[in-house]
């Protein structure tokens, strides 16, 4: 493996992970669990992306066109002609391997007779979109606030970080629920949940990057940039953030899984995705009354959530190891 390159990276960065994304990728590839996580993410992402093209939406929604899905930009959804007419379906069909199951509905059907497999596949789209957007939001906001606070220090730092700590002091779930209810005006939807989770994660991101910026801003190349007359804005954008980004990236990977989990929880509570949008958490909500009669209805979304989050966590751990010069495979 690229061991020598790795040692160089570590040494040159003053013991900090700063350069060599190619090397990081090599290390992740060489780590079987991280690789497995990456595969899971890749599969889940492609399911999420291509479900719009291929899966049978009408089977997932019983022909009721969802008034909102995150994948609306995909043109096929706008074209009702592509959607086959809903077929007759029995509610509470068991999966194919159980007694009375059929290949027509491999994972069975839900309370409205909708195909469970299609709904799980569509649920991936909502979950992945939720995970990525919420994390992107928190990361962007957090990195901006944390980098500015850390770079300028002094009063700017105090004001920004106190503001962030106020957000941080409110339990995330409470914050998100209150935000969702208030902003949506009583009509909760998954988009508000995403916004809420994004805002709730700003504090962690800003604290992570700020602590790195505090050491990066003392580096000579920052001083050199200032001495050459580079504007503060460009110093932060070009020099400070890229050199402080590694721990943020690791946390973001883990955070995607966490955001999926929180939004699934919100949907379960009824504050997230609304019917008929297929969403794993919401499916769990509908299934939990059927726990004893139709246990598979709870198991499938649960397994889907488990595998997806595990994928992100394994990849995140692998990335952390790869970016930490003290651990070299």
């Amino acid at each position: 493996m690229a061991t020598t390159e790795g040692q160089l990276d570590g040494k040159d960065g003053g013991g900090e992970p700063q350069i060599g994304w190619r090397h990081t990728f090599q290390q992740v590839k060489g780590d079987p669990t991280a690789r497995f996580g990456l595969y899971v993410i890749a599969i889940a992402t492609s399911i999420a992306v291509f479900s719009a093209v291929d899966a049978n939406l009408s089977r997932a929604t019983m022909g009721v066109y969802p008034d909102y899905t995150i994948g609306e930009w995909l043109p096929v959804l706008e074209n009702p002609e592509r959607m086959p007419p809903p077929t007759e379906m029995e509610p509470y069909q068991p999966p194919v391997f159980a007694e009375g199951g059929s290949w027509a509905n491999p994972l069975g059907t839900d309370q409205a007779g909708r195909d469970y497999l299609s709904r799980i596949i569509y649920g991936a789209r909502v979950s992945m979109a939720v995970g990525f957007f919420a994390t992107f939001l928190g990361l962007t906001g957090g990195v901006l606030i944390g980098a500015v606070a850390g770079y300028y220090g002094g009063r700017i730092d105090d004001v920004l970080m106190r503001f962030v700590e106020i957000i941080y002091s409110i339990p995330a779930l409470v914050l998100v629920i209150v935000f969702t209810v208030f902003v949506s005006g009583g009509n909760p939807d998954v988009i508000y949940a995403v916004l809420g989770v994004g805002i709730a994660t700003i504090p962690v991101f800003s604290r992570i990057i700020r602590s790195r910026v505090l050491s990066v801003r003392e580096m000579d190349y920052i001083e050199a940039a200032r001495a050459a007359g580079v504007k503060d804005r460009n110093i932060i954008r070009r020099h400070v953030i890229p050199n402080s980004f590694a721990p943020v990236l690791v946390y973001a990977t883990l955070q995607i899984g966490f955001a999926i989990l929180i939004v699934a929880g919100l949907s379960f509570l009824g504050y997230g995705a609304q019917p008929p949008t297929p969403d794993w958490g919401q499916m769990l909500n509908h299934a939990h009354g059927q726990m004893h009669v139709n246990p598979w209805m709870s198991i499938w979304p649960g397994v889907a959530i488990l595998i997806t989050i595990m994928g992100f966590n394994l990849f995140g751990d692998g990335l952390q190891d790869a970016l930490d010069p003290r651990i070299d495979n």
Binding site: G14, D220, E223, A224, A227
Partner: peptide
């Protein structure tokens, strides 16, 4: 800064952005 008075720093290892 830069165009009239420039500065060369002490540590060549630390003065370039990696």
């Amino acid at each position: 800064r830069g165009n009239e008075i420039a500065i060369i720093f002490q540590d060549p290892m630390e003065s370039l952005n990696p």
